[in-house]
Design a protein around this nucleic acid. Sequence first.
DNA 1: CTGGGACATTGATTTCGATCAAGGGGCGTT
DNA 2: AACGCCCCTTGATCGAAATCAATGTCCCAG
Lengths: 246, 246
Amino acid sequence: MNQSVVDFRDCSECPIRHRAVCARCEPGELEKLEDIKYYRSFAAGQTMIWAGDRMDFVASVVTGVATLSQTMEDGRTQMVGLLLPSDFIGRPGRETAPYNVTAVSDITVCCFRKRPFEQLLVSTPHVSQRLLEMSLDELDAAREWMLLLGRKTAREKIASLIAIIARRDEGLKAGIGREAPFVDLPLTREAMADYLGLTLETVSRQVSALKRDGVIHLEGKRRVVIPDMDRLLEETGDDADGGPLV
Amino acid sequence: MNQSVVDFRDCSECPIRHRAVCARCEPGELEKLEDIKYYRSFAAGQTMIWAGDRMDFVASVVTGVATLSQTMEDGRTQMVGLLLPSDFIGRPGRETAPYNVTAVSDITVCCFRKRPFEQLLVSTPHVSQRLLEMSLDELDAAREWMLLLGRKTAREKIASLIAIIARRDEGLKAGIGREAPFVDLPLTREAMADYLGLTLETVSRQVSALKRDGVIHLEGKRRVVIPDMDRLLEETGDDADGGPLV
DNA sequence: CTGGGACATTGATTTCGATCAAGGGGCGTT
DNA sequence: AACGCCCCTTGATCGAAATCAATGTCCCAG
């Protein structure tokens, strides 16, 4: 269950150095961040933050996957974000967490104490500029998801999810050499359902249907082989060219 | 059709001075903004910006209402944002518009040429800080909408929309004295449907149902009287206390 | 006042996904 | 090996919203 303890005392060694909120920082700025940072790890399945909790830190995902979700009193749940390495958690200027944050895999995050981080936002423009950029990207992603939730069919939703995860993976795997037409879904069927606004049964059925129709192929429950990416993209309902923006 | 021409040469006269992207600016900073701004007006129904268009400006809504929407090839449309006075249009660092922007009422916007505005973002922290804050608010609103689109029933969606518009109006009308338990919907039934991920028939039916059940009362097609706000809020499915975040 | 068009309501029917229900496969623990 | 647990799949049925269709209301132009 435990992953190897990580503690990149030196930010320049950090695997997310060039994508996270610190991406634009110069050495002097990194030093300031190093002063206020600390690492925390959570086991798969653990809830890291409950909606309504007081938040005295913000953080970057270093390794692992987490979800952001909202729940209604009667238990209906909607995931509102998927946090992959380099994604940012928390909001400067807010006291309490608006969403649940749940570790989907074992996860390590790099936390910054909130007050000092807020001061850095004012004093080091490279942090606030990068945070603005990341927030705008997330806003685009959220809006793309609104189209999916509001207007796509169950089949299109599943195809879109696979395509989006494939695209994000591609970014991380870039330059690995091997042509890798597969994705390992980081989510259970239930988590996929919560993300897509479906039930887990419908997710299961539509995954089976895409498999039956040859759009995807399964290796085990979680690995999705994509024999023809263009075919998959057609199934998403998105424009062939533009596609999703993020 | 034409509204009176507005041209607040002096930003300090501007009705959205304290809420827009310029809210935090000091007099010197405002002068810089004044140098690169110009006003444009659009008639109700007009599309201000098409998705894919080259954008050489960003803007603030001064008066009127606009929508942000995405359309799939087959015509399915999802609104992804409702722009009220003081809301920001456009994204620094992006060349082309990702969404359609459509004037719902007659509207006037305060445009800033993009390149100079981007430079201001770097040089005047009060602009970029405010923009970050506004972007994070929009992100919260988008995520709240994801819950609505993914998990709420048609009835809850309608109640939520009315409640949200009521809340926003309240902000603008604050201090008017008269207790005003009504809202004028700025949207047609079809636009409401596009926002809520429903069909216009379902919108119409659910509005009628809420009226039949005494949750709301109609004066004409567009004015909604809210005899009991708590009752309406119950119908939204949201937590009684926390409610929507924005 | 009359006709036309935009917007809205209501009814009948269909359909997609939810719900209810049963069972299968993999895996770690004892 | 056997049990239990979690995750997943598949089937049968139900129901909320979509779709198809007709009608109503308001407002403006002629």
